[in-house]
Design a protein around this nucleic acid. Structure first.
Lengths: 193, 193
DNA sequence: CACTTATGTGGACCACCGATCCGAATAAGC
DNA sequence: GCTTATTCGGATCGGTGGTCCACATAAGTG
């Protein structure tokens, strides 16, 4: 890759990061190009679609989340690992407002640039879920895709300004439904640790 | 109102109904105007914003849902009333893909044309929830807004093509977390009746 | 019925969006 | 220093929501 191309590539990724954290994933691509002091056509050559740009931008985050899932698998109890990883996932999405809808769409569109990353993430969650289920800590009538859907729904709540303040509590409500530990479903919202 | 104006008004509502059920709430306003054999300006004079159009279109549905809440309040047990009303709400949103995001936004925007309807709907849900809580059938650490958020999140799941097949089961999961009846939080997804 | 007037209409227009094309600029290799 | 292959970005296209205003027309009046 030519030096100027590489420079533009990096500038674009940085500009996209700040623009998206400020305005959400639906930010105008022209805005991103402007921030990077680059023409729109240049942005679109480096990243042919919005999803491709998102993929490049989020890949490291994805990798961190999957790596952390692997680490939690060995360092914590099945229940704690599952819950704290889910919490991390939901918290991460608050960084990039609106990313959950794109991820949900990418899940079934094998052509999407985000598809592979999303499938990997779902698999990581499914492993943690299976471990918790084997330990009797999680209900057995849901699978990895259900878990992904629940996380996506909670993340979507966090994207809605009017509902975001409730996101933490509702995470606890949903977590209590997934876990089978004592007290779940009761008035104690926060799952015990 | 002049006779021709009334005719256009009705044509527009009908066209909006079919267009939105086919393409979701983000359908182009020009498309709706075209279907009604009317100029875009005419649509925008009758309904100055997309939300105003949605409000006129959905008001009868809103009223039906609130009326049904009132009826369930007297005809069913607190638990059954709450669950079946929530189920109806989620089912209704599938008619108008994407409406939940608009409703969530309208909740905190008092200027929105949809604001009043959404608040009314939330209040109806809150009454059913309070009744269930008084009867000891629902957890007491959530309120009407939390309930609204949960319904909105489930409805959002139904809007995502890749996750919609899971919506029914996940409704049961969330319902089991809200209800305090025996077995909630366990492997029995469907709340007992 | 004819005429005036107040109201409704919709094509033309604006700024913005994502996307594409292609002549100009420029870095890499000799 | 020159050639060549690559990269760049302004111009352009069809689309969006929204505004404006000349025109058509329904309603009211003599």
């Amino acid at each position: 890759m030519r030096a100027d191309a590489r420079k533009n590539h990096d500038h674009l990724l940085a500009a996209a990061g700040t623009a998206i954290t400020e305005q959400g994933v639906d930010v105008s691509l022209r805005d991103i190009a402007r921030r990077a002091d680059v023409g729109l056509a240049t942005l679109l050559r480096h990243f042919p679609t919005r999803e491709a740009l998102l993929d490049a931008l989020l890949r490291t985050s994805f990798d961190e989340l999957t790596a952390q899932a692997a680490e939690l698998e060995t360092s914590s109890s099945p229940e704690d690992a599952l819950v704290s990883w889910l919490r991390d996932c939901v918290a991460w999405t608050t960084e990039y407002r609106g990313v959950t809808a794109l991820m949900a769409a990418a899940m079934e569109d094998t052509e999407s640039a985000l598809h592979a990353s999303c499938v990997t993430l779902r698999a990581a969650g499914a492993r943690l879920l299976a471990r918790a289920q084997d330990a009797g800590a999680a209900r057995t009538d849901i699978d990895g895709t259900d878990l992904f859907a629940l996380v996506a729904a909670l993340a979507w709540l966090g994207d809605q300004p009017s509902l975001a303040p409730r996101a933490d509590r509702l995470f606890a409500v949903v977590a209590s439904a997934v876990l089978t530990s004592a007290g779940s479903g009761g008035a104690e919202g926060r799952p015990r640790r």
